[in-house]
Nucleic acid binder design. Structure first.
Lengths: 205, 205
DNA sequence: ACCGAAGTTAGAACGGATTCTACTAAGTGT
DNA sequence: ACACTTAGTAGAATCCGTTCTAACTTCGGT
């Protein structure tokens, strides 16, 4: 948990050779594939290593713990969400509408692989690691809500983070079978309308 | 072999003899004590059993998994919070003020035993178990916000649950060392003012 | 007082994450 | 090419949650 010196925990900084990048990719791919079947429990470190054609020790060199691995997988998913949003930005007229749009798009994405989603969300919450997940999601929401990109006020940041928290909670409830997609949509809309509607200062469409 | 029907997983229903109640109490106490030191990892099932003067198998008979044990410990903490609130209800004038009051009181309580808090929160979020935690906290907030006790509208429920989600998230951040008590207070106030201020019926200001 | 069911106990056994060891392969500077 | 640090491999070993076993108690009913 401590001595993580220069290995790539997050995205992929100092990987020297090409074969290392490929190893990393193979590992992440194997992990995601396994998780999207049986969930966390199917994604066993031995199995991931084997499936990635890598020794167990090597797997642990790349990802010091199972959590780190899961966090990395989540990071990739987030990348995909962000690029999807860049490709087709939310069109709703109001800030809260756009935020709901993004969150529900992410929800649909996760629902496609419920086992994976379950593993990811739980690991995220558990992680001791530096995970810019909340921050990243909040930043995404702030941006998407159409607020001044660079200079969101603290209040805006707090509100976006709050909406993110609510979303995560609802996802968890869904994974526990206590919410349907429609439930989540309705509830997120309610929360978003309170949290994000008409920001104090600037620009409304 | 299968039909293990009425063992006390949750609170404490059908415990026959007095000695069983005492065993249960000793177990919970040992668990809480251990967790309030080294956190989850210090609260090992073998250690709990030993410290409670009970065989490992017995521990597992009372609490079928570590999670169940943690959930039970949390339940006790919640009991204490609720009775504390009954004893000295929040005095603020507005619904959101009262909610903030309750949440910050709970926060202070948890801060007193950070390791315990950490273990509990994480386990709770992870738990597959039926845990009326979110519901219980949301119900508490609804009640405390001074809304019609029995007949909170769906919207009110959603908003209270949302505030609960935000609070849990902030607690997690605090346990990760990324928030101070003051941070949390400020952020919860911001979220609460949006989520709970001026419920349909009673408008202030 | 006795029987059978359910509760306890000490301890072994199992499974999966993580760590450790001893060894081999690859890359780098000279 | 040569020494050397670094990365990778196979597999044993360790740790902890959980399950299983076999014998011992406790308790309620008769």
């Amino acid at each position: 948990m401590e001595a993580v010196q220069d290995l790539p925990p997050g995205t992929a900084p100092g990987l020297r050779t090409k074969s290392q990048l490929q190893r990393r990719r193979r590992i992440l791919q194997a992990a995601a594939a396994l998780a999207s079947r049986g969930g966390v429990e199917a994604m066993q470190m031995r199995t991931v290593a084997e499936r990635a054609g890598v020794a167990l020790g090597t797997l642990y060199r790349y990802f010091p713990s199972k959590m780190d691995l899961v966090v990395a997988v989540v990071g990739e998913e987030l990348d995909m969400l962000e690029s999807s949003i860049a490709r087709r930005p939310p069109a709703a007229a109001t800030p809260d509408g756009r935020a709901v749009d993004v969150l529900m798009r992410a929800t649909r994405g996760l629902m496609r692989e419920p086992e994976l989603a379950d593993a990811l969300i739980r690991a995220l919450i558990l992680a001791d690691v530096e995970l810019p997940f909340g921050d990243r999601m909040a930043g995404l929401l702030v941006r998407v809500a159409g607020l001044s990109d660079g200079r969101a006020t603290e209040e805006q940041g707090v509100l976006a983070a709050s909406l993110g928290a609510v979303w995560v909670q609802e996802l968890l409830e869904m994974l526990r079978g206590r919410r349907t997609y429609e439930d989540i949509q309705r509830r997120i809309e309610i929360a978003a309308s309170r949290l994000l509607a008409e920001f104090p200062t600037s620009r409304v469409e």
